[in-house]
Each structure stands twice: as C-alpha cells, then as structure tokens.
Design a protein around this nucleic acid. Structure first.
Lengths: 184, 184
DNA sequence: TCCCGTGTAGTACAAAAGTACAAGTACGAT
DNA sequence: ATCGTACTTGTACTTTTGTACTACACGGGA
C-alpha cells in the first residue's frame, strides 16, 4: 500500500538492527516488557519488519540474546588476549572487569539473560557461554579455582549493578590473588 | 451484583495472600510478565481484589518484593544465629547456601529483584538489604573480606541457578577459607 | 433494630500488544 | 524487457491487560 520512498534493501542489516534495538529495549525495560513496537520504534523500522524477520516475539528476543551472547564471546576473546600478555593477571583481570562495567547497558543485558536462563532452560546454553568461556580462559592462571574466580567476578559485577557504585579495584585484585594462591 | 457466598472477611490475610501469590508468579514468569489476573488466579481471589488492595500494578509488585525482602531478612537472621554457634564458619556458611538453594522459587525472586534494582534505582534499597545484611553478618568472621565473600556466594548461587546444577560444597568452603585467610 | 462504612465480586471499558494480511515495490533470473 | 520472488509497509483484527465501576453483603455502632 505504501507509496513513499523505501529504504535500500539490506535484509542482513535489518536483522542486525532489529536485534540490536531489541537489546537496547531489553536493557531499559527488561525482557518481560519488551514489545514489537518498542523494538521497531528503536530501530526506526515499521512494525511489520519485526514480524517479517522474526515470526514471533520470542524469536525476536531469542535472536537478540543470541546476538548478545556472540558479542560476549568476542569480548571474552579480547580478555583472553589481554590476560595472555599480562605479567600481573589478577590486576589485569580487575582492569578488564572495570572496563566491562563501563558499558552498563551491555552488563544489564547479560544479567537479564542470566535471570531468564534460570527460569527458562532453553536459554541456558546461551548463558553458559559466558560462564564456561570465562572459566576456560582463567584455568591456566587459576587452575581448579577458575570457577571460584568466575563466581567472584560475577558477584562483584552484580553488586556494582545493584548498588550503582563502582568496583573497588584493589580489593577485587586482592581477592582474586587469594583465590588463586598456589593454583596453576 | 454477585449473590453467591462470600468468603470470611480478613483484609490482612488477603494482602498477604496477594503478595505471596505475586511472588510465585514473579518466580515463574518474571516481574515484567506479572499481571493482575495471574496473581488473582494464583491467590484464588477475584480480579477486583488486586486493585482494591493495591491501586496500581506497581504497588502490587512493590509490595510483593518488599514482602520478599522481609523474608530474606528473617532468613539472614537465621544464618547469623547458625554462624554464631559454628566452630567451622566456612563449612557452616556453605551448608546454609546449599539449604537456601533448596527453595529455588525464593532464590529466583531474589535475583529478579537484583536485576530489577539494577534497572530501577527505586528498588535498590530493597536489594541492598540482602547485600548489606549479609556483609554485616560476615564481618566478624571475614573482616575486610566480608564483601568479597558476599560476592563469591552470590556468584556461586547465580551459577547454580543458571546451570541448574548444585553447589560443590567442598569447593565453596575452600574458596571461602581462602578469602578470609588472615582476616578478622 | 437500623444504618453505614468497609470489604467483596463481577463486569465493563479503553489502551496496548501480538500477529495477520493486503497492497505495493525493487531486484535478480530468464 | 518481463516476470516472479523476496522484501517493504501500513493497517486491521483479536487477545490481553490495567483500571474503573456497579452492585451487593457483612458487621459494628447509634
């Protein structure tokens, strides 16, 4: 019906734009209150585009979370590289955590995914990507305590998000040192 | 209009029933998808009861979360008592965590509250109740590392919820021991 | 006993939201 | 150049949802 000018065709870009817009909406209002319309508005696309590319809302949200999980994996690869060239691993890890917290939107989405995965087993593989990936990354330095360091880091990030405050770098570094003492 | 038999009057019990039903709904579908109708159905009460006792949906959810926060405080008091009489504090703490994880519904609500608080500052005081209370409780045993132990425990619980698995008691105990070594 | 305020319950209504669809357009294959 | 398919877009339809409202019943005080 529309006879106005239509934008250039680029289905791939639209899928990505929708997924990214969905992530922004999720960060702002949570998974549960994310709607087709809010995502379309955020992406600057018509409502119909959402259902054309993602048959159902769950598909849209699922694709967005998958997108986020992939971004997280890329982030983790960067961490692994940085840790590999570091002479003080705990201090470097602390710096990475602090940098990660610089983008609260992204962190918020990650924890949205966590809580959703706790409720819906279908999302667990996505959430485990971060946990397992980080554990594997830390194993060379933390050995059997890698999982503990992951828990500590996730807990520290959670605290920062809930209280709205920053991470105490020295304290985190010291705690990581204690956890990995004598390991690896 | 209804001329059927009405239940006994007990406003206090109704408020409590609605708050508790809301918690169950929140645990199942998340805060964002919690509705008046779902809560009323769960509580076995008519729809009108929800708006009679809680003018708006936010009020209902807020009351439910406050209810949960109070329950958490009671739980924490129990923990404090148990830790006070324990000769092996890290082991006792591990046992408490494992016991806490026995009621996943409750844990789910707690983390729903966390993530919601990260997004909405108005909920932060409620969420801080657990963090601060637990920190204070651990201070006598963990000293300056109390906050680290809280982070570790929260991270471990989060891992258990996300992966659907149980907590490795020995590992948690060992990690706590390391964190509080030389403290307090 | 007779009210009257508080609680109860069913229903109503407008807004929001998920999804379907019809109409039209661009682009590659033939 | 034509044709068909994939994409685009605006709108329509139905369900869900928040909230308001009407009608009624109980229970204690005048």
């Amino acid at each position: 019906m529309g006879a106005q000018q239509k934008r250039a065709r680029d289905p791939g870009a639209r899928r990505r734009a929708l997924a990214e817009a969905a992530l922004e909406v999720i960060a702002e209002v949570g998974i549960g209150r994310t709607t087709h319309r809010a995502v379309a508005l955020r992406a600057g696309l018509p409502l119909g585009a959402t259902t054309y590319y993602f048959p159902t809302l769950d598909d849209l949200i699922g694709a967005a979370l998958q997108h986020a999980a992939e971004e997280l994996r890329v982030e983790l690869d960067g961490w692994a590289e940085r840790l590999g060239g570091a002479d003080d691993v705990p201090a470097e890890l602390t710096g990475l955590v602090q940098g990660y917290l610089g983008d609260r939107r992204r962190v918020q989405v990650e924890y949205e995914l966590y809580v959703a995965a706790a409720r819906d087993p279908r999302l667990r593989p996505l959430a485990r990507g971060w946990l397992d990936g980080m554990g594997r990354m830390l194993e060379p330095y933390a050995g059997g305590a890698a999982g503990d360091v992951v828990a500590l880091v996730d807990g520290v990030i959670l605290q920062a998000m809930v209280t709205g405050s920053d991470v105490d770098g020295d304290r985190l570094t010291a705690a990581v040192r204690r956890l990995i003492a004598d390991e690896a």
